[in-house]
Amino acid sequence: MKKNEMKEVLQEVRSVERGEIAPARVREVKRLPDGTLQRVVIDPESYRLKQARAWKAKTEAAKIRHDLNLTQPDFAELLGVSVATVRKWERGTGQPSGAARTLLAVAKHHPEVIREVISAR
Rank of each mutant, 00 (worst) to 15 (best):
residue 1 M to Q: 05
residue 1 M to H: 07
residue 2 K to F: 14
residue 2 K to H: 12
residue 4 N to R: 14
residue 6 M to S: 04
residue 7 K to M: 07
residue 10 L to K: 14
residue 10 L to W: 12
residue 11 Q to C: 04
residue 12 E to G: 04
residue 13 V to W: 11
residue 15 S to T: 00
residue 16 V to T: 06
residue 18 R to V: 00
residue 19 G to I: 01
residue 25 R to N: 02
residue 26 V to G: 04
residue 27 R to N: 08
residue 28 E to M: 04
residue 32 L to R: 15
residue 32 L to F: 05
residue 34 D to G: 10
residue 35 G to C: 02
residue 38 Q to T: 01
residue 39 R to C: 02
residue 41 V to I: 05
residue 42 I to Q: 13
residue 45 E to Q: 11
residue 46 S to Q: 07
residue 47 Y to C: 00
residue 47 Y to E: 09
residue 47 Y to L: 00
residue 48 R to W: 04
residue 48 R to P: 02
residue 49 L to N: 14
residue 50 K to F: 08
residue 52 A to P: 07
residue 54 A to L: 08
residue 55 W to F: 09
residue 61 A to R: 03
residue 61 A to F: 06
residue 69 N to L: 08
residue 71 T to A: 13
residue 72 Q to D: 05
residue 73 P to S: 10
residue 74 D to S: 12
residue 74 D to K: 15
residue 81 V to S: 06
residue 84 A to S: 14
residue 85 T to H: 10
residue 85 T to P: 10
residue 85 T to W: 03
residue 88 K to C: 01
residue 89 W to C: 04
residue 90 E to I: 02
residue 90 E to D: 09
residue 94 G to K: 02
residue 98 G to N: 01
residue 98 G to P: 01
residue 98 G to A: 02
residue 98 G to K: 00
residue 103 L to H: 12
residue 103 L to A: 15
residue 114 I to G: 11
residue 115 R to I: 01
residue 115 R to Q: 13
residue 115 R to E: 11
residue 115 R to T: 02
residue 118 I to R: 15
residue 119 S to V: 01
residue 120 A to W: 07
residue 121 R to K: 15
